[in-house]
Design a binder for these strands. Sequence first.
DNA 1: GCTGAAATCGCCTAACG
DNA 2: CGTTAGGCGATTTCAGC
Lengths: 166, 166
Amino acid sequence: MAGAKLDEIDRRILAELQADGRMTNVELARRVGISAPPCLRRVRTLEEQGYVRGYHADIDPRALGFEVHVFAMVRLISQSERDLSAFEQLARGWTLVRECHMLNGEVDFILKCVSPDLSTFQRFLTEELTAAPNVASVKTSLVIRGAKDEPGVPFDVVEARARASA
Amino acid sequence: MAGAKLDEIDRRILAELQADGRMTNVELARRVGISAPPCLRRVRTLEEQGYVRGYHADIDPRALGFEVHVFAMVRLISQSERDLSAFEQLARGWTLVRECHMLNGEVDFILKCVSPDLSTFQRFLTEELTAAPNVASVKTSLVIRGAKDEPGVPFDVVEARARASA
DNA sequence: GCTGAAATCGCCTAACG
DNA sequence: CGTTAGGCGATTTCAGC
């Protein structure tokens, strides 16, 4: 089972750093109840083993002028692995596309997009996305308002599972 | 225009902190070409003015045992503001739901969910989400594979717009 | 008003027990 | 894992542009 090698201190370290990635190591150590040096060693190990992929400032898109958020459902003509990969590669190059996930069911991909305004998005939609090779159809849904946007992982579930398997 | 009050140094600070939120202030100052004290002041100001909402470690969900990612499209019976808000409030309480966005069109909400396994998600889906008051229907799509998941904002677009309006 | 320089304080991070 | 200790970064103060 993944995550089984982590003890409770490791899990608390991850939870604290997810909540505040710029916390000092001393403060982190205090919160998890150990001294600073072993705490730092644990953090380095967690980073090396891939539990922590990075640290990012959470920038407000609207403060920088990205007023428009859109989900785009993309259907492709061909679902061969070659063509799926080709579309993914294309999506990685579009900076307005922040996320791209392959789905089961009728829709092949869901894309989460941001844009400064509608006309910029419309231009991207018609000239880039819909015009891309192998794209059969694109259905877009504007985000009217965001109700929840939590980064990362629910650590209450992590803890519940850890206790259950103990 | 939002973001107009930022000069190029501010934008570079935001871009650097988005890419590496744990960078030291000294390193950040070096990269943007000013000395540490004014750099720190700018960071504090950007935080206070809401450009930076926080800092988060990017934890790999799979490393912690979250093997399942699902998008859920929710239709409600009533779309009155009172009922929309009630559903949003409910969604904020479900920790498996990481994002909840209100959409235009037929679907009222899209939810991004994580789960340790399918059975846990099925239980959540049938006992919580579908069973919630005012929910008319829920369509779920499993994420087969993630192709792109970039946090935050495309700073190439930010820079292009800044140059265009200069 | 900003920036940069100097100084203090606290943290990071080895080495060792 | 904890303690010690040296070096570096963070942060305030103050002067200059």
